[in-house]
Design a protein around this nucleic acid. Sequence first.
DNA 1: TTTGCAACCGACCTGTCGGTCGGTTAAACT
DNA 2: AGTTTAACCGACCGACAGGTCGGTTGCAAA
Lengths: 194, 194
Amino acid sequence: MRDPEQTRQKILEVSADEIHRKGFNATSLSCILARCEISKGALYHHFANKMELGYAVFEEVYAPAFIALWQPPVEAEDPIQGLSDFFSSMSKEMSCDELVCGCPLNNLCQEMSGVDEGFRIRILAMQQQLNLLIATNLSRVSSQLQPGLDFSQIAYFIVSTFHGSSSLSKSSLNKELFDKVIKELCRYMGQLKR
Amino acid sequence: MRDPEQTRQKILEVSADEIHRKGFNATSLSCILARCEISKGALYHHFANKMELGYAVFEEVYAPAFIALWQPPVEAEDPIQGLSDFFSSMSKEMSCDELVCGCPLNNLCQEMSGVDEGFRIRILAMQQQLNLLIATNLSRVSSQLQPGLDFSQIAYFIVSTFHGSSSLSKSSLNKELFDKVIKELCRYMGQLKR
DNA sequence: TTTGCAACCGACCTGTCGGTCGGTTAAACT
DNA sequence: AGTTTAACCGACCGACAGGTCGGTTGCAAA
């Protein structure tokens, strides 16, 4: 009946969802407790405080999910095509509600980077890891790309644009503007090829 | 001695700075009162509540400043060159502290769009106004650009990338990554020309 | 000079937040 | 069966938020 590991996972899962939707500060513990149907004591048995809970959500939920999301398209034979399909499928398959929540990494970056050092270093590490992932896979197929390109620069550019486009859909509440940016992003990426 | 209009302006100015640095929710009225050296009664004499203060800051401080910032580069003879210089000068002339605060419009978009309808519609209107500004000025020089371009799409793309790059500097605490993205953005914009 | 009112003051209110802690329960081991 | 301890409970706490309101002050018109 009692299953501490399951309790912990439930807390992480619910917290991840709440933080994704509302942001870290706007997420209240009482709301998490209600959804998990546990007491405050249970939560504080598993996590020292709200910050540590936030770090755990980042490391055990967001980070793995983030890599699992980006790795397949980037490691495709043709990463340019992989990323184009990846972005395009988002506007098609994601519901408006999901889209409006944005990327958890970018959300936390905006909200927490300037406020908490623990979040900042974790977010930065994740961004650098993603950048390396994209840049190395672009250089892998560099023979098919235009000469003289800075792959790290391009990787940061692509991710920045993607995050910026997520921001747009938050205010427009629909996919239209998001689609526009993604279209142009795909056009840009296509131009990287010879 | 008493100058209600000056008091009001002071409140708006200080609030704009606080909201820019900390975000809307994290900005406390008591902090604004302390910096303005006024009482809570004075603030609530001029503004109905915190939300209305936020709206006033947006409309009377952010929006005019935003237009004043973007209009000159976009309305230059060569808007592509104007925007390139505009972005490049940011990384050179802005201090790290300023850069890390990000664009007030984008910050509020991320924080408030999903939470408050009043903010959302104001932010969206501003984004559309900026988009129109850029798109019309690109079409103005369309004879110098490649054929078949969607100017609105390009305008949203440019702004999205810029906002995304601001996000990057928040976690890295330096200009390096911001510079990288801006460099690539300028390279992209250069390719729009014939 | 008196009067009216906008401008301003600040003590106080209510609600919610993250966090604490003494107590209870269930399960594993001796 | 008795003992220990991790797991969990929930009443309670202080801090601080936004917001209220009766009272005071200064200026301008009558």
